[in-house]
Computed example of a mutant assay.
Amino acid sequence: MSRSFERYQRRKLISSYFSVVLSIALVLFLLGVLGLLVINTKKLANHFKEQVAVTVFLKDNAKEVEVSQLQKSLAMAPYTKSAEFISKEAAAEAHSKEIGENFLEFLGYNPLQNSIDVHLKADYVLTDSIQQIAETISAKDYVSEVSYDQPLVSLLNENVKRISFWILVASGVFTLIAVLLINSSIRLSIYSKRFIIKTMQMVGATKSFIRKPFILKSVQLGIIGALIALASVGGLLYYLSGKYPELQLLADLELLMILFGGILLGGIVITWISTYIATQRFLNLRTDDLYY
């Protein structure tokens, strides 16, 4: 009978530890994912900004030397990420594939123009900057027009600012929620041992002596939960970096190490503080209050 009761108690204890580790790992994993998002917000914003193209349309009488020099000067400009020349024939072929029919046969001529697609660096994808660049290029005699999606640029910059702000707000709120959830799990674990705490106190054990094993066990569970969270975040990061290599998610190793260290430290600190507060609460309770 007593052996059966011991097995029951052991299973109950293991179940309690498992639930604490699982809750810590899940919360820290979500916190780590949010940390990745915060770290890569600017990188993601830059990626979308650099998809915006400024198209320089060239006059039909533009000389090949002039076009070549313009392309080279644009490619070497400090604001340029890439500059690609697109002939009117290539543009017509691409447009025909897009609409599903050969419009040249219907028109009898090619109305399109030679052009250069310029993708700007993210820092220059601003309404004022693009307008100034467009005016400088348009001043050349052999340039017919400089075109870009001005409403898209304005909307993109507004959305980037708005999303960055809300991500910071969400980070603060979620960090608070993470602390509260882990604290709740630790308190429930300590609550099940409240009579043991009070018994130890009644036989003369000091508060620090009583707290020590509970804090050590909780910190141990916090480390295990943090390591599980780190493995999960690392796996997700590896998957995303392979699927979206252009984002270079593994480029900032220093920031990633700080994030991983923060997750591990968070698992230790939060469990230590939560256990200290929980055990202190039961140490200060009267014996009769333990039943409520």
Rank of each mutant, 00 (worst) to 15 (best):
Q71K: 12
I130S: 04
A90Q: 13
Q69I: 09
L44Y: 03
R3H: 10
L22P: 00
V146E: 15
L256F: 10
L240A: 10
L36S: 00
S147M: 11
S87I: 08
A62R: 05
S15T: 09
S208M: 11
I258T: 13
T41C: 10
F165M: 05
E50N: 01
V269R: 00
A139E: 06
V203N: 04
V38G: 00
N110P: 13
M200S: 09
Y292D: 09
T287K: 15
Y291H: 12
L216Y: 06
E254K: 15
T80K: 08
Q201Y: 10
Q220P: 03
A25S: 11
N102G: 01
S154L: 08
T271G: 03
Y239Q: 09
V52F: 00
Q71I: 07
Q71E: 11
I228S: 02
L265R: 01
V33R: 03
V153E: 08
E6N: 11
Q150D: 08
I223E: 08
N114Y: 01
N110T: 05
Y191Q: 07
F260L: 04
L22N: 00
K88C: 03
G266I: 07
V233E: 01
T199Q: 08
K42A: 14
A53T: 14
I163K: 07
V269T: 11
F260A: 14
L31I: 06
G32P: 11
S208L: 15
A226T: 00
Q132S: 13
S16R: 13
I137N: 05
L44R: 01
T199H: 06
I228F: 14
V65L: 11
M1R: 01
Q51F: 07
S23Q: 03
S185D: 06
L22R: 02
I99Y: 09
N157A: 07
A77N: 12
S274K: 03
V173M: 09
L58N: 01
D128L: 10
G108Y: 11
A94V: 02
R11I: 07
A45V: 13
G32T: 00
R211S: 14
A205Y: 05
I177N: 02
F165R: 14
S147V: 15
E101P: 09
L221S: 06
E158G: 12
M1H: 07
T80D: 08
K81M: 02
S68R: 15
K63H: 05
A139K: 15
